[in-house]
């Protein structure tokens, strides 16, 4: 935790930089979705667009969490508390998403 005023002053520039990066990333997300020659994969929205979009969002979120929310130098306890939330949140999302998944009905399941 940067508590002394000198250290905090040093961080101001970092905060500005992160802000600028966040703005650029936002423009990038829209550009990837809207501009035709930046559209990877097939035309329109597809899996690659999803991965790219979520990747940029994750980068942004990580920056906010690490720098603005000071997670880059936080106590171990906080990592545990917040980490559990993230972990179980992902559990819920993934397992719910697989709700109807049924591998034996996949045609190539038995190597056909």
């Amino acid at each position: 935790m940067a508590d002394s005023p000198e250290e905090i002053k040093k961080h101001v520039k970092l905060y500005m930089l992160i802000g600028v990066i966040l703005f650029i990333c936002t423009v990038l997300t829209v550009a990837v979705a809207k501009i035709e020659w930046l559209d990877f994969g097939a035309r329109g929205f597809d899996a690659i667009d999803m991965v790219i979009g979520l990747l940029i969002a994750s980068v942004k979120a990580t920056l906010v969490a690490l720098i603005f929310m000071h997670l880059n130098h936080e106590k171990k306890m906080i990592y545990w508390l917040f980490g559990m939330g993230i972990f179980f949140g992902i559990c819920l999302m993934v397992i719910t998403g697989f709700a109807f998944s049924d591998p034996i009905y996949y045609e190539d399941f038995f190597g056909r």
């Binding site: 179980f88 559990c91 397992i95 697989f98 709700a99 109807f100 998944s101 049924d102 591998p103 034996i104």
Partner: peptide, 21 residues
Amino acid sequence: SFIVWAHHMYMTGMGPAVSAF
């Protein structure tokens, strides 16, 4: 206890993969 919840739902038509888990 966070990852056992769907044993209440065996009869809902969930896929067998999830049931087995």
